[in-house]
Amino acid sequence: MSEQALRSRPAPAGRLRTAYARRRVARSALAAVSWTVVALFVLIALVGPFLAGADPARQTADAMLPFGSPGHLLGTDDLGRDMLARMVYGARPLLLVAFLSTALAAALGVATGLVAGYYGGKVEWILMRVMDLALAFPSMLLIILIVAAWRPGVPSLVVGVGVSLAPGLARLTRALAAREAGRDYVLAARLGGTRAPRVMAQEVLPNIAGPLLAQVVMTLSVAAGFAAGLSYLGLGIQPPTPDWGYMVQAAQEFLYTAPRLVVLPAAATLIFVVACNFAGDDLRDALDPRGSR
């Protein structure tokens, strides 16, 4: 169907229409909030540390200060470190790992899926079985194996999370690329003497980029979840670098006496993950009107 035909789809009448409109507005409001949150987190990770003022690693005698203490807006932790500074600095490793591992997963998954979907047949079978192999391990186990075999830190975390998230993207890309590879404009490009790699990059990829991009943003939220989870288990970012996942784990014993030490980093992680998810949803709806509702 043509884009014009889709755009001019008549809106339903009467009460239905009101409900339809209300849902649309609610959706777009949620989307706006989600995108703002994602942007805010990125901004905090980028410039926050320059504005935080305090050194997140400097220990003081003022341990366990509550919210709103002078000089320590969010109080201090059990070692007297400024909580605000730790929260702001803690955004960095999480976002860094989330973005890098998503980029790695996208590079691996999209390349594999594109080649598999375009060629089909044996090539597809082999490539997708390799991806299934990665999928056969529970993600967390696979990441732990990689991190443990290497050494905990950003590089091993990025590789582990990236590799474990690649198959999902590969499968989506393969399905989209296979559908597109049979389209007449792809046949026309082949007839015109365009080589396969260029056909994939120039004809197929731009036409499947919409749903892929949406899935990549969703993958970002999963990657952030894994990164935080591994740090919580002590396999991710190593102290003294402040990291939300590790902060939750370290503060567990104070859950009842000073819940903010746990709740703040946990809530921050959760908000980022959820915001990425809704943002991805919104992106998918915006870029692919066929798939929505």
Partner: peptide
């Protein structure tokens, strides 16, 4: 090709 809407890359 038969389908003038599917035979040209929209991008």
């Amino acid at each position: 090709f038969q389908d003038p809407f599917g035979s040209l890359n929209p991008r």
